[in-house]
Design a protein around this nucleic acid. Structure first.
Lengths: 248, 248
DNA sequence: CGTGGCTTTGAAACGGGTCAAGACTGGTGG
DNA sequence: CCACCAGTCTTGACCCGTTTCAAAGCCACG
């Protein structure tokens, strides 16, 4: 399994200092300060996985909930006959696990190298119950994810293969690059993972990438690198009615 | 617009008695008692719409949030060129609106006659902030909706037209009927709405309904009535790996 | 009894899937 | 250091399911 790491120097993560945590201001802990933050810090544990590792299988007991600190992980559901659909893509600060549910509802896989900030389920649930700063933030994040899921439903239900690929590339480019044109990024996903997320086959993803390149909308650099000189053109290909604000 | 009402005697709703409310134990108010319930009761207003009415358009200001009391409403997103995808189906006890957001993110349409129990946004947000019984329930409901949305992503991304239609019929039959075989129900959705939800065209929905009837899996009674003697067979057609537990 | 909206049915076109090679990439061991 | 190997990605040809376009049937309602 190719290792294409987005990991930030893991030395910083080995310490317990939430102050220097890269997701401090966006994760489920974002609204906590002082005592509350200390309490979270006491119950947390870091753990890392390599790209391609399965973090949890559908139906496994998941004894923790977690914030994704670095990297990128996917949530996937499998049908009886093996067909597979990615239903979520966790990026730094996203929350993994559902309070009140012991079993993983989806297979969780590390798309790149991943580090989680984990909380034991029981302790976290107690904290959730008595700490509005946590429960409010979690509600907010859940509603954002719901919006993202619904946006994705539009893509899955109504967009053409070309629009699907363009949409995904636009999202990745906007997230990863510091908006100076040309936008550049390394794809955190294999073609396989892209296909799974987009409800397509690998071959179709590959063909559409080539088509977008030949149309001059994007440039490819090796198998993972992409660049785009004209985001507007890419967004037009994506077929959105706005400018692709979504995906939490 | 054809009126196909699921409405329960609206006389009961005209009163302010939460005790006799059909969704009392499942809606966002479910965990509230005594004082808290009184407080909610004071800020609530009922309002009804006819089947086909638009309750809110995408981008409209929505000055309230609400629980759906009776009937069925759809959330729909539209692409620039007019393609349309339903992203949610609200059934009794479901929550409408997002605390903290003024604008409707989706078009909300009454699929059947609908009655909402509405709360003014401001007052509800205050209550949400200081009443764990409300915020906890809303979090739970949001996470259920997120699960349902993800389940739907699998359907949109990977299922065949036949499986899509079978899945939707199974869900409606299970919800609507009092599980004595044969399961019977009146569809709360037009073919158009079904197609919108399933990411298909009207014609394909119609063809698959006919195909399922000819295969002996379902019976059709007029244009809205369906019956099913063998739910297991229908679930097999639906292609699920379990027994279709989802959709909040 | 006619009208308009919803639904069904049919025929043809097309987009994406499937199957099958072949090319590239990065890592490994001679 | 280079050749090889396994895994990943690309490309091509063909096929099938769904959409598109068109027309006819059905139903509720005026």
């Amino acid at each position: 399994m190719t290792v294409s790491s987005l990991a930030i120097a893991s030395a910083a993560l080995a310490t317990d200092a939430c102050d220097s945590c890269p997701i401090r201001h966006r994760a489920v802990c974002a609204s906590c300060e002082g005592e509350e933050l200390d309490r979270l810090a006491e119950m947390k544990t870091y753990r890392s996985w390599k790209a391609g590792d399965v973090i949890a299988m559908e139906g496994d007991e998941l004894p923790f909930v977690a914030s994704l600190v670095t990297g990128c992980a996917s949530l996937t559901r499998t049908l009886e006959d093996g067909r597979t659909q990615m239903v979520g893509l966790l990026m730094p600060s996203d929350f993994l696990g559902r309070p009140g549910r012991r079993m993983a509802a989806y297979e969780v896989t590390a798309a790149t190298d991943v580090t989680l900030c984990m909380f034991k389920r029981g302790a976290f649930e107690v904290m959730l119950a008595d700490t509005p700063n946590v429960s409010r933030r979690l509600l907010e994040m859940s509603l954002d994810e719901l919006d993202a899921a619904r946006e994705w439903m539009v893509l899955l239900g109504r967009k053409t293969a070309r629009e699907k690929v363009a949409t995904l590339l636009a999202i990745i480019l906007r997230r990863a690059s510091n908006d100076a044109a040309p936008l550049r990024a390394q794809l955190p996903l294999t073609r396989d993972a892209m296909a799974s997320y987009l409800g397509l086959t690998i071959e179709t993803v590959s063909r559409q990438m080539t088509a977008l390149r030949k149309a001059g909308v994007i440039e490819l650099d090796g198998t993972r690198g992409i660049a785009c000189h004209d985001l507007a053109a890419l967004l037009t290909e994506a077929g959105d009615d706005e400018d692709g604000t979504f995906l939490s």
